[in-house]
Design a protein around this nucleic acid. Structure first.
Lengths: 363, 363
DNA sequence: AGACGCTACTAATGCGATTTAGTAGGTGTC
DNA sequence: GACACCTACTAAATCGCATTAGTAGCGTCT
């Protein structure tokens, strides 16, 4: 009657605790804790013995117990706010995540990953994770021009790294609490200038940038850079400009159609992601417009697709996994008490392929 | 001197505990626990009052404390074992994950997601998660024909759902411990039969299946189905066959090149994913082989890319997010003490687009 | 009126670690 | 030899919640 669940299902192996180690090593639990956490208070001999026993038993700290007493959850969070519709073909996130985890796994830190529909849900999730003490910090992606997240996170005291750009250009007004927000970003402005230079040097004068979501910070930076670079080169703002989309293949194709139907169609188009670039190239192909003879195409972000496209697309290549590594390292540094920093990742470089060339003679 | 960290960094808001609620509601902590967990032992009035106070304080259970006392971590795990190289363009996983999380978030369950290099690391990770009590169960993807994971998980007593196919056809030998493994799968065999029927009806007699990794269970099922369906239809096994790849665009393209160079090139190719299909179509385009006039192309798994390709690719469409929902629901049922089950997801359906048509007359 | 049972609670214990406050035992000092 | 002092440990408290074992109060039955 008092029998412990000696039911049909055989009980799986019990997980060893420090108590088990203590008993087998003939010491107290505290000694075990000291030994396994590299704290002083145990002799080298005892420490070695305890370590050996722990290994024998295959002991691993119970993460819940550790989190409860030690303040640290040993877990970081990453939320991706994307309407399911645009959860399309993008290697970006898996690459980023794999880079992040390379760094985290070395530190035995787990990553909580969640896809949500919108920004509000994302914020609610941060609150919940904070209240539940589920994560020690978060990686914030897709920073926006007017972003509520840094303030929220500062308020909660949740350490964070903004991946992809300075979410807040400068702390404005009264800091609510000391923000623990680092930033890892790439110089989109300079990259855009390089692309424009490349096209301009080839002879293009009518260049359109099919941008992504307008309220993302990096989109704003790219648009701004296009404008200033064009001005610097004395290009006509009517002919060198940006149009915004939602990053989907559908809007990329639609924008391309509109552009090609215009009285003075562009001779080069820069797409803010690979999917739109492919979609755009397909539109051109469908209309019998040869690439690059009559239209040059550049994709921001490379992918296998750009390589297998016909013709292969000139692309801005960046090492996304490395970006993830950088971000993870920065967040860990923050958790270790380091100061918030702003770190610049590698500048994307232009990989010329067969989708760019000089514009048709008439232009 | 005894001042609590009244340091430079202002202390972030303290998270309320049940003790705070108990004090404010004038009851004991146990009463609060009962009230908030829908257990008997408190009157309706008191329960309501406690709930109100908890809401006011914005209380959320500390996940570590709950895990420590309540046995449940409130967290599930998903490991993706992929060499970084093939972490390419695939909407499959993000879609799957977003479906999974739709179900989980309703139950306040988090998802630990990790990308690793290989199967061994994946197994090690399961062990660690188990030892650390980090997860209550896991979702196993990419089941293989000879898969070590079911046995390991059964051994650990870690509930799991195999996503994408019966990892073990039937429990063979002595079951180590009662396995808690459910399966969610799609009938790849029937889907393959449909594809083959479609192509056969169009008149194709030389059909090649460019398959993915040969040791994945669903690849095996597709290959087997191709063979038996071909036999049933009286097709020549020399002319209707499968070749395997690693799913990458590079191998997809390479396989296509080899096939097209053969003495009797196929008139139709079925690719096991969208990336290879696009790469294959690009190879055909590069050789001036018109699709579908001289070569029909079918992609297994749809994506925006198939739609924007030129011509748009005929694809086997499946609702991946829904597959994720199904898997998550099954795992939760298992955690609630339900029996392991095998659930069949929706059959993928063929979406004919412009990449398939009758073979050239000569054939 | 006492035994009984039920409701609505409180007190105490445990989960598995970390951490603080002790406490033996040895060493050095004058 | 009394004292301080360090080393190497142990005992006990703690984290926040769940849970089990009480317990007080009240109505009911015989």
């Amino acid at each position: 009657m008092t029998a412990p669940g000696e039911a049909a299902r055989r009980k799986p192996a019990r997980r060893p605790t420090i108590k088990d180690i203590a008993r087998r090593a003939g010491v107290s639990e505290s000694a075990v804790s000291f030994a396994l956490n590299d704290r002083p208070g145990v002799s080298a001999d005892t420490r070695a013995r305890i370590r050996r026993v722990a290994d024998e038993l295959g002991w691993q700290a119970n993460s819940a117990a550790r989190a409860l007493s030690g303040e640290r959850a040993g877990c970081l969070g990453l939320v991706l706010a994307r309407p399911a519709r645009t959860l399309g073909v993008e290697s970006f996130f898996l690459q980023l995540v794999s880079g992040i985890q390379e760094v985290l796994s070395a530190r035995r830190t787990a990553l909580l990953f969640q896809v949500v529909e919108d920004l509000d849900t994302e914020c609610a999730l941060y609150r919940r994770w904070w209240a539940e003490r589920r994560v020690d910090g978060v990686l914030v992606v897709d920073p926006r021009t007017d972003d509520p997240r840094p303030a929220l996170l500062a308020d909660l005291g949740l350490p964070a790294v903004a991946v992809g750009g300075p979410a807040t250009p400068e702390p404005t007004g009264v800091p609510p609490t000391a923000p623990l927000l680092s930033t890892v970003w790439a110089d989109d402005a300079k990259a855009m200038a390089r692309v424009l230079d490349h096209l301009h040097d080839l002879g293009h004068r009518r260049i359109v940038h099919v941008a992504g979501l307008p309220d993302l910070a990096h989109t704003a930076r790219r648009i701004h850079s296009l404008r200033t670079t064009a001005a610097r080169r004395g290009l006509d703002a009517q002919r060198v400009r940006s149009v915004t989309t939602d990053y989907s293949d559908a809007e990329g194709a639609e924008a391309t159609r509109r552009l090609l139907d215009a009285a003075e169609p562009p001779t080069a188009i820069i797409y803010d992601n690979d999917v739109m670039a492919i979609a755009g190239a397909a539109v051109a192909a469908a209309r019998g417009i040869p690439v690059p003879a009559r239209l040059s195409v550049v994709a921001w972000d490379d992918s296998p697709l750009c390589r297998v496209a016909h013709p292969p697309l000139t692309a801005l290549v960046r090492d996304t996994a490395n970006f993830g590594r950088l971000a993870a390292a920065e967040l860990l540094a923050l958790l270790d008490g380091g100061p918030p920093r702003t770190v610049e990742g590698e500048l994307p470089h232009l990989e010329p392929r067969q989708s760019t060339g000089p514009p048709p003679r008439a232009d």
